[in-house]
Design a protein around this nucleic acid. Sequence first.
DNA 1: CATTACGTTGACGTAAACGTCAACTTGGTT
DNA 2: AACCAAGTTGACGTTTACGTCAACGTAATG
Lengths: 128, 128
Amino acid sequence: MSKDKSTIYSISDLAQRFDITTRAIRFYESEGLLSPKREGQKRLYSQKDYTTLKLILRGKRLGWSLAESRELIQMYKPEQNNQAQYEKVLEKVAESRDRLQQQLHDIQIMLMELDEHEARVKEALETI
Amino acid sequence: MSKDKSTIYSISDLAQRFDITTRAIRFYESEGLLSPKREGQKRLYSQKDYTTLKLILRGKRLGWSLAESRELIQMYKPEQNNQAQYEKVLEKVAESRDRLQQQLHDIQIMLMELDEHEARVKEALETI
DNA sequence: CATTACGTTGACGTAAACGTCAACTTGGTT
DNA sequence: AACCAAGTTGACGTTTACGTCAACGTAATG
């Protein structure tokens, strides 16, 4: 299928799939979030790059800065092999988790309040 | 207690409580998110303003723009009393809910992936 | 009454995340 | 050869969300 390990994407390919601009993708690279292979001048994106991009956009939807997403992405790289690095990684994981749990909490409250409000509005509509 | 309906806050009061700057609070007002009473020049914030500010900051944590939070805030105002307005409100509610559910989904995936990664890192640490 | 604390309104500065040209190159297609 | 589509690298512009002075008002305090 299209998810096989050797699939390669062009920049406009990725842009279409994720509904973003090529400019954005190049910008992410300039910020150290992506580093695609090259074929002459042209960028070639691997399945790993695809996954990384997915991570970036998920981060964006959650209100993360690119710098934060970059940290998370680097966290997943196995290059950092000494203990200090690993422990820094674990700290980052904990931080991320706390932040996510705060967001989860915020969302639950929001959904509850929206429910209440929706009910009130519908009631108002019925009594018109 | 301090949650009684008549409690009034100064601007630096709110700034301290929410750990933001007075500049930010004034900015939110200039963007139409807050509209405190005045006593001469000075701004006086009611319990309603306090709640609105809480909503703004919750929106921020979830990555919303101030413009989006403003819409949500206006949604809660009972001033819009005709049917067209109400239906627009219901649309906004649905939109917000969809967005929140997408975020919820994103967060669940993130937490799962972090769990997996944490496990792998801890394993690596133990085998050092 | 002079100082200090707290507030006010401009006005300009800034970081992040791209958008938008402009001016090329390059690999096929007619 | 001529051309088009898709790609490239600058470089400058733009929006959002404030930060950071400056210059001033006002109220209470020593």
